[in-house]
Amino acid sequence: MTQPRLLVAAASGQLGRLTVDALLESVPAARIVAGVRNPDGDAAKAFAAKGVEVRKVDYADPAGLAAAFAGIDRLLLISSNAVGARAVQHNNAISAARQAGIKLIAYTSILHADTTPLGLAEEHKLTEAALRQSGVPFALLRNGWYTENYAASIPPALAHGVFLGAAGDGRISGAARADYARAAAAVLASDESQAGHIYELAGDQAFTLTEFAAAIAKASGKPVAYKNLSEPEFKAALVGAGLPEGFAGLLADSDAGAAKDALFDDGKALSRLTGRPTTPFAETIAAAVKG
């Protein structure tokens, strides 16, 4: 029986690269296709050096997507980073996948997409609805928070001795990006049908931002305390740090949601899917501190 060909869209992004690497641990390179916006870029060259076919995949180019998906059996549709344009871009990919006869779309959604209060979820909800209406078999990888999202704020926290946020005492079931990549690879390469599966993916170990700041202090040997702000205050701080207002607003909204445990899940579906414990948040912090 012919083995299915697997395409990872947005493969040059952080999650995409890790997913391709995870697939290569168990799937022959000849069965893997890396979809990238720039086939001449460094990421594309690195994939080709590993024996992985590279195709141009641009969610904003509907005409090119159908050709890019030709001969593909399973597609990992990694959500676009073009917040505000994602629903349209994802629809382009879903339509092209249907036209190409793809037998499974695995889509990276957001934790508890159907019930979460997070503003970031809106385009994910629209994409999930489009998948249901498409007629293409699909699986939902509802990813929780990447621990790296908070680890990105470690340098200013070390510089000022303060880790800012608006999550209060909310519990955050974060996991490393590599954990989510291994889960995506497991679903894409599975010998069992994944159609209709909805995975609520989150870390085994939840943390508060107070605990996160304490772990930064422990790893660095420098004093770092968590300072909780209101949502508007946190947004203003992010804008002051140079973030665009819209993006700062989404991050502040996400922290406000985290304060209500919107980023908490103790189902451990992620570690069951990958067959290994998720990366402890202190480990991600230690690696970030070391640089």
Rank of each mutant, 00 (worst) to 15 (best):
G71T: 00
R74M: 11
N81W: 12
N81D: 14
V83T: 13
V83W: 13
G84E: 10
G84V: 13
G84R: 02
A85C: 05
A85G: 15
A85H: 08
A85Y: 15
R86Q: 12
A87P: 14
A87E: 15
Q89H: 11
N92M: 09
N92C: 07
A93F: 12
I94F: 06
I94C: 08
I94N: 13
S95R: 07
A96I: 05
A97P: 15
A97V: 07
R98A: 15
R98M: 08
Q99N: 12
Q99M: 08
A100G: 07
A100R: 00
K103A: 04
L104P: 09
L104R: 00
Y107E: 13
S109A: 09
I110D: 06
L111T: 05
H112P: 10
H112G: 05
H112R: 04
A113N: 08
T115R: 00
T115N: 00
P117H: 01
L120Q: 07
A121R: 01
A121I: 02
A121W: 07
E123Q: 10
E123W: 02
H124E: 15
K125R: 15
K125M: 13
L126H: 03
L126T: 09
L126E: 13
T127P: 12
A129T: 11
A130I: 07
R132D: 11
Q133W: 02
S134K: 02
G135M: 04
G135Y: 06
V136L: 04
P137T: 02
P137R: 01
L140W: 01
L140T: 02
N143M: 11
N143P: 06
N143D: 09
N143E: 15
G144I: 01
G144C: 02
G144Y: 01
W145E: 11
W145N: 08
E148V: 05
E148L: 07
E148K: 03
E148Q: 10
N149I: 07
P155I: 14
P156N: 12
A157E: 10
A157F: 05
L158Q: 11
L158H: 04
L158K: 01
V162A: 01
F163T: 06
G165K: 03
G165D: 15
D169V: 04
